[in-house]
């Protein structure tokens, strides 16, 4: 059992939790993830590590309330316990040898992009953060990003904050204006990462994507999270979740992520009615 030390709503649908998990905190690195089960009869869901405190022995997760499992998790409060919490899983994001990087985050993906940006900043890399949200109300981690970024560009779909438009518009503008990145690291919805890769391919800028397929065990024993990368089948939980964006078959990944849509829809409808209005 893993105690919730802190719980904070970052926006109406995104929650931060700091969880007592000393063994995970000891080893966690940006880019890695955990698998949790909120309750004894719960589903196993993967969530990326958004932060950790090795001395306190805590791990921070940030999640968007999108369905039954995340609603159950969000119903827990400070002092409550998460039934199972295992990690750190997957490979850490590679940062060696980088000098200038654009970190492109979308929505709740920014929670995963932030620790990567912070680590890059801490080891002396020039970081340009481009973050995108649907509207002003959904913005998360703005101050945190600003503190670790040499350049911070905020985009909203409706223009209610920052600039109006998509992260891809901002990225293309920066590249066009002469910014030369060693690498672009992008984390967000599949469709966003696909379009980011569309832009960077044009300019031949190496791009790392953080994939988020359906997972069960997260240790390489089932292959539920498999992807086609460079024509080869890879398991995102052990070979990733980071991959070369130019090589990933995004259309296949998007089709696979819809496998349980009807089931998820049903689970969501059955789950807490209070939250339903906010989950779009």
């Amino acid at each position: 059992m893993y105690k919730i030390i802190q719980k904070k709503a970052l926006n109406p649908t995104v929650t931060l939790m700091e969880v007592d998990a000393p063994l995970v905190a000891r080893k966690a690195e940006p880019g890695q993830f955990i698998i949790l089960r909120a309750s004894e009869d719960g589903e196993r869901i993967p969530l990326t590590i958004a932060g950790y405190d090795r001395e306190k022995g805590t791990v921070t997760i940030i999640f968007q309330i999108v369905g039954g499992a995340t609603e159950t998790l969000n119903a827990l409060n400070e002092g409550d316990f998460i039934h199972d919490f295992v990690g750190p899983l997957g490979k850490a994001t590679e940062t060696e040898g980088l000098k200038k990087v654009a970190v492109v985050g979308g929505g709740v993906g920014c929670a995963i992009a932030y620790p990567v940006a912070k680590k890059l900043h801490d080891i002396g890399v020039e970081v340009h953060s481009i973050v995108g949200f649907r509207n002003e109300d959904l913005i998360i981690l703005e101050d945190e990003f600003k503190a670790v970024s040499d350049k911070y560009v905020l985009m909203t779909d409706d223009g209610s904050a920052g600039e109006k438009g998509l992260v891809t518009n901002a990225l293309e503008k920066l590249i066009e204006s002469g910014e030369e990145y060693d690498e672009v690291i992008t984390i967000g919805p599949l469709i966003m990462m696909k379009f980011v890769v569309g832009v960077t391919k044009k300019y031949n800028v190496k791009t790392v994507v953080s994939m988020n397929p359906i997972m069960v065990d997260g240790t390489g024993m089932c292959g539920g999270c498999r992807l086609t990368v460079g024509g080869q089948t890879k398991f995102a939980c052990v070979d990733g979740p980071d991959f070369d964006g130019f090589e990933v078959d995004f259309d296949e990944a998007m089709a696979r992520s819809a496998t349980y849509k009807p089931f998820e829809q049903k689970a969501r409808e059955e789950a807490c009615n209070l939250l339903k209005m906010e989950v779009k």
Partner: peptide, 26 residues
């Protein structure tokens, strides 16, 4: 020995294709 083998044939990553490990674990 829990790492499942696949056949590496075309279409193996289509929806509805499981490893026995995943199917049985679920």
């Amino acid at each position: 020995a829990g790492l499942p083998k696949f056949m590496n044939i075309p279409g193996e990553n289509l929806n509805g294709v499981y490893s026995a490990n995943e199917f049985l674990t679920r």
